[in-house]
Amino acid sequence: MAPWMASGLIYSSGLALTAGSITLLYIVTRTFNFAVASMATFGFYIAYTGISLYGGLPYQYYPLVFIFGSFLGIVCYFGLNRHLLRRQAAEITLMMSTLGYDLLLLSFIQMYADFLTHTYGLFPRRVTLNVHDFELFGERAAAIILPIVTILLLTLLHFFLTRTRFGVAMRATIENPVLSGASGINSDLVYMVSWVIAGGMASVGGAFMAMAMTGTPTMGMFTIPLMFAGAILGGLTSLYGGILGGFMIGMTEYAGIFYLSQQLGPWVLGYRMGIPLMLMAATLLLFPRGLAGIPLAKLINSLVGKKRGESA
């Protein structure tokens, strides 16, 4: 594996989870969750704290990271989102409220970083987590483990949504909140669970991304446009689309910048953010409803042609 591909896989897995988290929340609650930025950063800091205080591998702290992210999600739901949903607030108000929460979390992250520096003598403002990684089959283990974990999480989520009673109830609420409420589904619980899952996904995603990039307190702030780009690329209508979109954004960024820097020289490295944004702008221009909005079945049908005797 080329080095860019290894880091690209790690980074894209993280981006896929965060983009999936944004998509999930948008589908269920119509909320564009800005707080994903700080949830991701917090996820990274939980893993970092675990490693530097108790040692071990980054991977063993991911369950803890997930739990903490879920906690942040629940706090946001009960403190903020719930009241606004009941008030049927506009999309922008919902978005702004999560921005406020994100800024609160950002200040707590900065304070936490100060606290770590002061109390434990750590250097939490520039962290490279991948020094704690090990080698697997001659590659960085994260490049193999993290995509697998992402796929595993996605499969779990898929089974949760399609095979369990509550998952089906959740999908019903997504499709038609009023009707599902009338048939006795507790939409409050559905919203809460989606915040739990989304918060956990965002935090784990942040912890993933820190394995490929330098972890700083503003890490999430700087990558949030890319997370949103992934969600938009995915179309914001299906969870799988969001995860795929995030993954594609991450991979194009790494592959594109690697190719361009070989062709044009290393100066392009500074503009790496441009590639995913270009991709996002192109998606918005060509397929305003994202990858999921491309009428794939229709296209194939038009290529194959109508079956004889089939009505229009």
Binding site: L80, L84, G100, D102, L103, L104, L106, S107, D114, H118
Partner: peptide, 21 residues
């Protein structure tokens, strides 16, 4: 060891949340 300057962000976030709610 916490720099109170970070309270600026706390203020910003809190203002947004309080105003919205």
């Amino acid at each position: 060891g916490i720099d109170p300057l970070w309270l600026e962000f706390t203020l910003m976030g809190a203002v947004i949340i309080i105003v919205i709610l």
